[in-house]
């Protein structure tokens, strides 16, 4: 069945994620956080109202705009050559090594163990109304799906069409898209697990909760 130990070990071997901080738009960049190895924090506060560590400032048309870190991590590399220079949109400015938290590891493992139903094209996705109500009121894990079931409404270029679920029968364990946000083609929409597999999934959850040590 699921070899959780192996998967966990795999993640433990490289327990981090590389985050590339890119210039959101054109402008002259100035680094605030300019030491590699420095620790940076993501947004904090009860409502995530406090922005993360200030990494850099980007000045465009006399408007100085801050670039905050959106994840906790350690600065790995800074493109010092760009300091004080004009950058184009999307230019990598900094690389941050982010150690995976419990939730993220869990998410990673689940994505490997669950059946993922992928978005066929770049569009906005919605559940069909009756499923939507169920998801919103009772949570997604109460929804059972089987192949051929009408599950999604695809909205692209102001036109809506229906999308049927294809894949193994089971319950929706996780929902990976947000209403009113564009989903790239090939991104996961939902994760499905067979009913009898549920105990195994619960096992994954408890194993991660127990074994994963978050690094500071």
């Amino acid at each position: 069945m699921l070899n959780i130990t192996e998967m966990l070990d795999q993640i433990k071997a490289s327990p981090f994620e590389e985050i590339v901080v890119r210039a959101p738009h054109t402008g002259v960049v100035e680094f605030v956080q300019n030491k590699t190895g420095a620790k940076v924090a993501g947004p904090s506060g009860t409502w995530k109202e406090k922005p993360g560590t200030l990494l850099a400032r980007l000045t465009r048309e006399g408007n100085v705009k801050p670039i905050h870190s959106f994840q906790k991590g350690v600065v790995e590399r800074i493109e010092h050559a760009l300091a004080g220079k004009f950058v184009q949109a999307g230019t990598p400015l900094m690389h941050i090594r982010h150690f995976l938290s419990k939730d993220e590891v869990l998410d990673k493992l689940l994505r490997k163990t669950l059946f993922l139903f992928l978005a066929p094209e770049r569009a906005k996705y919605f559940f069909v109304p009756d499923v939507d109500i169920k998801v919103k009121s009772k949570g997604c894990q109460t929804v059972e799906v089987r192949s051929g079931q009408e599950l999604f409404i695809v909205s692209r270029m102001k036109r809506e069409s229906q999308l049927n679920y294809t894949g193994p029968e089971g319950i929706i364990y996780a929902v990976y898209f947000e209403t009113n946000q564009n989903v790239e083609a090939g991104a996961a929409l939902i994760g499905v697990c067979a009913k009898e597999q549920l105990p195994a999934i619960q096992d994954v959850v408890s194993r991660v909760q127990g074994e994963w040590v978050e690094e500071e």
Partner: peptide, 9 residues
């Protein structure tokens, strides 16, 4: 390379 064609800035 720019972020948006609609942004005059």
């Amino acid at each position: 390379r720019i972020s948006s064609y609609h942004d005059p800035n």
